[in-house]
Design a protein around this nucleic acid. Structure first.
Ligand SMILES: Nc1ncnc2c1ncn2[C@@H]1O[C@H](COP(=O)(O)OP(=O)(O)OP(=O)(O)O)[C@@H](O)[C@H]1O
Length: 862
DNA sequence: CTGGCCTGGCTTTTT
DNA sequence: GCCAGGCCAG
């Protein structure tokens, strides 16, 4: 560490010649190069608008550290907002610096990095956390299940009246608004959550709405947006419930040797606060820390960075307060606005003021949007370098199907035009200066359709399938949400961590084996009677036996039926289950490939038969096969991501258990990996067919689009009440977050932006509702309309865009294909009575390709 | 205990 | 228009 500590920004700037050389070599503006080259030790904050090259600067900084400063890649930690972004960052580094480098740096989300830290260090804080290295990560569904059980068991609610989701969200708010939730009592947690809600984030009326509903279930007043949260009665009731739920929830997760998402961060912060040795170790390990999208960090995340950054050579954070869109889940803009500056007194701030991404027209549109903020943003000067033209279109459709049809047809047309242009190989841009609106060479992956709510994806996807345009729904959770997938994952979880109660209970009677609800209840009573730490321990590890002499080879797995308080018949079923799981666990302990373990699970449980009973047998079995494939491939991918591997000191050869735990961690944390699959991942690949498959139009939420960019962007559902959401309308902060969200969406577009809205839209399956155009679109129309020649196009929605054969074809949602009425009738239940194996496999393959390519399943040839 | 059929509640946004 | 939970017959 040299003495350059107290440098001011201007002193820190490298000499002009170096700067110039560097700029030329790496394609950076002066502003950007200044940030990139800031000498170590450096505490840098880059504040800049969309498309100004923040991520570009962050990547360049990494490159600079490695190439010019001789920093070892192992010592670099990059934190991104999504797993997708982490992967992209790795890809970019791989392209410029090779696979060895990109593999050696640590890149991941806060949660992924926290999980890795804990795998190695949790047991150092065992006294407080009571977790071991093979802990399970509970996803939202798992947490919800835990809360539901508590509501039913401890608060005497029925399964139906219980509303676990708002309570779970409230717990999550509490956790993300504190530095750490470890050892915090219910009262403190609740106060913290309430403060966060009051500060502006999101509405907290959900919890109270629920209480109200339960109390007076007859009145279905839907228009009640008045928040009961401010009423002391509401608070009191909530507090009463929360007191019980909070401590019970924490207890249950401890018993299950599990962390929820928020716990991962809390646990790491607790570790840093209490174990200097671990903190030092990690500070040394990652002496260079870089964080993208810093405006959306929570307090716990900020703390993680603060601890790691204390001794860092480089602490480099990048963000834009105008793009903060996660206030509703506890992100605090103050982290980038002021906290960073306050805590790191010698921090330098760099600003970037050029937008390299979008045309001037799109930049103007974006400006018009952000000016809608009620609490004005400190919008910095910010200019486009790309000349503008008629780049923004407003499209009105009759309803959501027509909207989808328009988008899909328009996409198809643009792709066709682009191909024509490319083929006729026009010898170059007729001199129109900086204006590059040619969509020549436009590829499907350069097009995105963005929307506010996930449900909108349905109509849009249907339109793309009908039009035969290949597409991916980014962030689609549906695969991991499937019953058969959850079942099998639950088996793996129990094998990995037998304390995992949620998974054990899911699996104990799937496939059904005569262990019903009553039996499970009795088993639980038995577990507490014999003071075993968990049901899993009692069933598989003889934790019911008082004497610990379990080495006796003749010992019984379970005691007598009488001791267990169940019938002999039930005991037989339970014993068979226990044996099955012990066997599976043995495999998991010795075989390092998760796919092999899965195969064992399927074999031991006769899962194929279980699946074959159902009518969607082929479909389901196909998913099982897919999961096995995924798990089989996982082993090699996981090797890349080991944080302790490259450090030099600890080259632990990975045990099968570690590999399995890592695979499961991946499943919980990065279920959006599917999306990455369809992206740039295979873009450099030789294999043309893979490349072809990776090229698809992207459908995603506005939230998921953060950080990305596309030549052509469609924003669907630009209607008041949807975008902006009617549910984020209780405070200026909430409304402003909607403004910023739309701003993010608009600024994803490089060349063309289509703002689509429907004059009527169906909610659920009911009657179409009349909708009005979003005020955001009005603002853009006003702003662009004034600027002389109207830059707004108004394409006609062609009537032919409507699906032609409305009555003869239906859309099969499970398979995502259009099914002809006749064919589906004659094809029977597609169950394949007389089908020989070959035909069945072919059909399955067609269906999965149909989804990825958008081609009608029946027309696919192999 | 199991499975099939019926009902109501639901839709912001995500690691 | 979907899914989880409830209800009921075997
Ligand atoms: N100096 C430069 N010259 C030319 N193009 C640049 C330059 N810097 C960045 N770009 C390009 O501008 C685009 C936007 O860059 P980048 O994604 O890094 O911006 P960002 O600030 O992270 O945006 P956002 O805030 O929207 O995520 C990219 O396509 C990038 O290649």
């Amino acid at each position: 560490m040299n003495n350059g500590w107290a440098q001011t920004a201007s002193e820190a700037i490298p000499d002009p010649q170096t700067l110039l050389n560097y700029r030329c070599a790496s394609n950076l503006s002066t502003q950007q190069a200044n940030a990139v080259l800031s000498p170590n030790p450096s505490f840098v904050r880059v504040l800049a608008g969309p498309g100004s090259g923040k991520t570009h600067v962050l990547v360049s900084r990494v490159q600079h550290l490695i190439e010019d400063e001789n920093v070892s890649p192992e010592n670099i930690l990059c934190i991104t907002f999504t797993n997708k972004a982490a992967k992209e960052l790795r890809n970019r580094l791989e392209r410029t610096m090779g696979a060895d480098v990109s593999r050696a740096i640590t890149a991941g989300t806060f949660h992924a990095v926290a999980a890795r830290i804990l795998r190695k260090h949790v047991e150092k804080v065992h006294e407080a956390l009571e977790r071991t290295a093979d802990f399970t990560i509970y996803d939202s569904d798992d947490s919800k299940a835990v809360v539901r059980d508590i509501l039913v068991e401890k608060l005497g609610q029925t399964k139906k009246s219980a509303a676990p989701l708002p309570m779970k969200n409230f717990i999550s708010s509490a956790k993300s608004s504190m530095k750490t939730s470890v050892n915090v009592n219910a009262r403190t947690a609740m106060d913290s959550a309430l403060r966060m809600k009051a500060r502006g984030g999101s509405s907290n009326s959900d919890v109270d709405d629920d209480d109200r509903r339960r109390k007076s279930s007859s009145s279905s007043s839907s228009s009640s947006s008045s928040s009961l949260s401010s009423s002391s009665a509401g608070i009191a009731l909530l507090r009463e419930q929360f007191d019980i739920v909070w401590s019970e929830y924490e207890q249950k997760l401890r018993e299950a040797n599990s962390f929820d998402f928020d716990d991962l961060l809390s646990a790491v912060v607790y570790l840093f606060e209490n174990r200097r040795d671990a903190k030092r170790y990690l500070q040394n390990r990652w002496s260079h820390v870089l964080v993208d999208e810093f405006q959306d960090t929570s307090l716990a995340q900020y703390e993680m960075i603060r601890h790691l950054g204390e001794k860092a050579e480089t602490l480099f954070v990048v963000g834009d307060a105008d793009q903060a869109i996660y206030g509703w889940r506890g992100a605090e803009v103050a982290n980038i606005r002021s906290r960073f500056d306050d805590d790191f007194r010698n921090a330098q701030t760099f600003r970037l003021t050029t937008n390299y991404r979008s045309t001037a027209t799109i930049v103007s549109a974006a400006r018009a949007v952000i000016q809608q903020s009620e609490i004005p943003s400190a919008l910095m000067s910010w200019d486009a370098i790309k000349e503008g033209g008629q780049d923004v279109a407003v499209v009105e459709a009759g309803d959501e199907r027509e909207e989808g049809a328009f988008i899909a047809t328009q996409v198809k047309q643009m792709l066709k035009d682009a191909e024509k242009k490319t083929n006729s190989s026009s010898t170059g841009g007729s001199s129109n200066g900086n204006r590059d609106d040619s969509l020549e060479g436009l590829r499907k992956k350069d097009i995105a359709v963005l929307y506010r709510t996930n449900t909108q994806a349905r109509a849009l996807e249907e339109a793309f399938v009908r039009a035969g345009v290949p597409h991916v729904v980014v962030g689609d959770q549906s695969f991991y949400g499937r019953k058969e997938i959850k079942d099998l994952i639950a088996y793996l979880r129990v094998a990995s961590n037998s304390s995992d109660g949620v998974s054990l209970r899911r699996v104990i009677n799937t496939p059904t084996r005569g262990i019903g609800e009553k039996t499970v209840e009795k088993l639980e009573e038995w577990v507490s009677r014999c003071e075993a730490p968990s049901l899993g321990a009692a069933l598989f590890d003889r934790a019911w036996a008082k004497n610990s002499d379990s080495d006796d080879p003749d010992h019984e797995i379970l005691p007598s039926a009488k001791d267990m308080g169940i019938t002999a018949r039930a005991r037989n079923s339970v014993l068979a289950f226990a044996k099955t799981l012990i066997e599976i666990r043995k495999t998991a302990d010795t075989v390092s490939n998760p796919g092999e373990v899965l195969k064992k699970v399927v074999a031991m449980t006769d899962y194929e038969n279980h699946v074959k009973d159902k009518d969607d047998a082929n479909e389901r079995w196909g998913h099982v096969a897919e999961l096995i494939q995924l798990a089989t491939d996982a082993e090699e991918n996981l090797a890349e991501n080991d944080i302790e591997g490259g450090g030099g000191t600890n080259t632990t050869s990975k045990s099968p258990k570690t590999t399995l735990a890592a695979f499961l961690e991946g499943v919980s944390l990065l279920s959006s990996s599917e999306a990455t699959h369809g992206n740039e991942m295979f873009d450099d690949e030789e294999d043309e067919s893979r490349k072809e498959r990776a090229d698809a139009v992207k459908l995603m939420t506005l939230h998921a689009s953060k950080g990305a960019e596309f030549d052509v962007v469609f924003i669907a559902g630009c209607e008041d009440g949807l975008t902006p959401s009617a549910r984020a309308n209780e405070s200026a902060e909430e409304r402003d977050e909607e403004v910023r969200l739309f701003y993010v969406g608009v600024t994803r577009a490089k060349k063309k932006l289509y703002l689509c809205h429907a004059s009527t839209r169906r909610r659920f399956g009911s009657k179409p509702e009349v909708r009005t155009r979003s005020p955001f679109v009005d603002a853009i129309a006003d702003a662009l309309g004034q600027s002389g020649n109207s830059n707004i196009l108004k394409p006609k929605v062609p009537k032919s865009a409507k699906p032609a054969r409305k009555n003869t074809s239906t859309f099969d949602w499970k398979k995502r294909i259009v099914v002809d009425a006749e064919e589906s009738a004659s094809g029977g239940g597609a169950g394949g009575h007389g089908d020989d194996e070959k035909a069945r496999r072919l059909r399955r393959a067609r269906q999965s390709v149909a989804k990825a390519t958008g081609i009608d399943a029946n027309s696919i040839e192999f």
